[in-house]
Design a protein around this nucleic acid. Structure first.
Length: 550
RNA sequence: GCGCCCGUAGCUCAGUUGGAUAGAGCGACGACCUCCUAAGUCGUAGGCCACAGGUUCGAUUCCUGUCGGGCGCACCA
């Protein structure tokens, strides 16, 4: 980020000095090929037309100006007119003091400063335990939250509890049904009910608390079963999430929303805007005005609300709480629902960009390459709790975050569990542990680890591996910013693998304690400390621990 | 039938405001521990970025079409 900002400032001054307008299409980025210097800028190419000259000629003029900068070692003109800039070593050296000064905040940026965001995720119906798919959504939502906070946003996290409506009735009904069976009644399986074993457990507990359950009228027994099941299942969900290092600050009840008449308020707003109309005895919302395929029903002709109706009211409520950005994380099978939700947000008068949905694709659970059948009846495990218990929290989270969220994920239990180089999480953690080990050894051997890096100490960092490392560390802030902008936390895990790879390479080729030179040892030690800080901060964004030893 | 997502190395996948000779890990083959953790490093092989057009200085990226895969198209939640 320092390299980019430095060039941005210099180039803007040069362009202004030429009486030209700064083009928004300018990119300043590290080139793919190291041969092309530290940073590459396309400024001459995007500015040539405006300057009435050829890209290469313009590049030559700009290069001439940049050469005056003592922090820049070299400027080349390449290809169609790229400027390839190489910084002086001491420019890169000051990356280390920057890391030391920021410490656990290094990598944070001000991209979202002053803006409030809400991330709503998991929000699984409280009718059963979380499964592995929910786990992926939990990892993505939690990590995204951390990334957005690091990028300057004020973020609140929320779990929307669908505790109203038909599925709650079915939940109560299912428990009561199992309770009847437990009491010896011989009943055929109903068509529509929750079949999981956990329902039987809940039924048994309800019976223990209410021995007279069977004597009650169903109108009394059903709510008892429903409420007990809801609380029990929600407790389980809370515990699973806590064990997964995932926190929701707000648990928002759909029932409470309905109770306060939010839906009617929202209907009124839509009517006032001329977007609601009656037809065939139902109340409709004209979502086609906002690009939806067809209009949608809000209130059915039987008088009941649709799920969509309360969802609009819910989002209305979110915006009333003052968020500049609302991010919903949904299972990808709900993608058809996105256009209508976008329509609703627009109809509520909110800017399009203030609402975003991240679709999380299904997780394909494997063991040793073979698909694990997703049958709860067969007792094969697919609950989040069991998966985390088997492979560990760090490995599971890293796996979920090492893929674009909207692509399918093969989750092979044997692979994720494996503590080897097949498993990227250990590769990254090992890099951190290695540094910690070197720092411990330094103390044992009485080699001083400088508390603070000074230019005199850093002057000993002249090797290619050392400068490459500094350049990579300087990119951390850029990675955080783009992950926040794209709502894509997986960028962090790919960057972490790059940093770990650079560290392992460095470690193999550059002795630190055995450098045979105190100045070199001191310089490399402060460099390693900087690397450790970046790895720690990056892993923290993923919610993965950074061990001191392995 | 309509809509959305996807198609990149043998496998799993990165690559987002369009940039240079398209990357990583695994797998395969071959090297490296008297030395700070070998859970590591280095090297080799592997590609018509599904296909065909278009836009321009330049396309894996943007547009159109075709093929192939996944998922949605309720007065369900």
């Amino acid at each position: 980020m320092r390299a980019k900002n430095h060039l941005l400032g210099s180039l803007k001054a040069i362009v202004a000095g030429m009486d030209l307008q700064w083009p928004d299409k300018t990119t300043i980025e590290p080139p793919k090929d190291k041969q092309h210097g530290d940073m590459a800028a396309n400024i001459a190419m995007v500015l040539a037309k405006q300057a009435h000259t050829s890209p290469r000629e313009l590049a030559a003029r700009i290069a001439g100006e940049l050469q005056h900068d003592p922090r820049i070692a070299n400027v080349d003109i390449a290809g169609p007119g790229f400027l390839n800039i190489t910084f002086a070593a001491d420019f890169w050296h000051s990356t280390i003091p920057a890391i030391e000064e920021a410490g656990p905040r290094f990598g944070s940026v001000e991209y979202g400063k002053g803006k409030r965001a809400q991330v709503e995720y998991v929000s699984a119906n409280p009718t059963g335990p979380l499964h592995i798919g929910h786990g992926r959504g939990a990892a993505v939502g939690d990590s995204l939250t951390r990334v957005l906070r690091f990028a300057g946003y004020d973020v609140e996290t929320e779990y929307y509890i669908n505790d109203a409506g038909r599925q709650m009735y079915i939940l109560g009904f299912s428990v009561l049904f199992r309770a009847k069976q437990l009491c010896g009644q011989n009943l055929p399986d109903p068509e529509d009910f929750y079949r999981g074993e956990y329902i039987k457990d809940i039924a048994a507990e309800v019976l223990k608390l209410h021995p007279d359950l069977m004597d009650m009228p169903e109108d009394d027994a059903l709510p008892i079963c429903r409420d007990y099941a809801l609380n029990d299942i929600l407790d389980g969900i809370r515990k699973d999430l806590a064990d997964f290092n995932v926190e929701h600050q707000v648990w928002f009840s759909e029932k409470s929303l309905l109770a306060e008449g939010a839906v009617d308020k929202t209907f009124d707003r839509l009517r006032e805007a001329g977007l609601a109309f009656e037809q065939d005895g139902a109340l409709w919302f004209r979502t086609t005005d906002f690009g939806d395929d067809k209009d949608r029903v809000l209130k059915k002709s039987n008088g009941l609300l649709t799920y969509f109706a309360s969802d609009i009211a819910y989002h209305d409520n979110k915006y009333d709480r003052g968020f500049d950005l609302c991010v919903d994380i949904w299972g990808a099978d709900h993608h058809g629902y996105v256009p209508r939700m976008r329509a609703a947000v627009e109809a509520l008068g909110k800017p399009k960009e203030s609402f975003d949905v991240i679709l999380v694709q299904l997780v394909n659970l494997l063991r040793g390459g073979e698909q694990v059948a997703m049958s709860t009846r067969a007792g094969t495990f697919d609950t989040l709790e069991e998966v985390v218990k088997e492979v560990g929290r760090d490995a599971a989270r890293f796996m979920f975050l090492s893929r674009k969220s909207d692509s399918h994920l093969d989750f092979d239990l044997d692979l994720v569990k494996q503590q080897s180089m097949d498993n990227p999480v250990y590769y990254v953690q090992y890099a951190h542990a290695r540094i910690a080990s070197v720092l411990r050894k330094a103390e044992e051997r009485g080699i001083a680890v400088p508390a603070k890096a000074t230019p005199a100490i850093l002057g000993a960092l002249t090797g290619q591996d050392e400068l490459d490392m500094l350049r990579l560390l300087d990119q951390f802030e850029d990675v955080v910013e783009s992950a926040a902008r794209q709502l894509a936390p997986h960028h962090i895990s790919f960057y972490m693998q790059d940093v770990a790879s650079a560290l392992h390479r460095f470690y193999a080729n550059n002795p630190v304690l055995n450098a045979g030179d105190n100045d070199v040892a001191a310089a490399r030690l402060v460099l390693l400390k900087g690397v450790a800080t970046v790895i720690r901060n990056g892993l923290d964004l993923l919610g993965v621990s950074a061990p001191e030893s392995m």
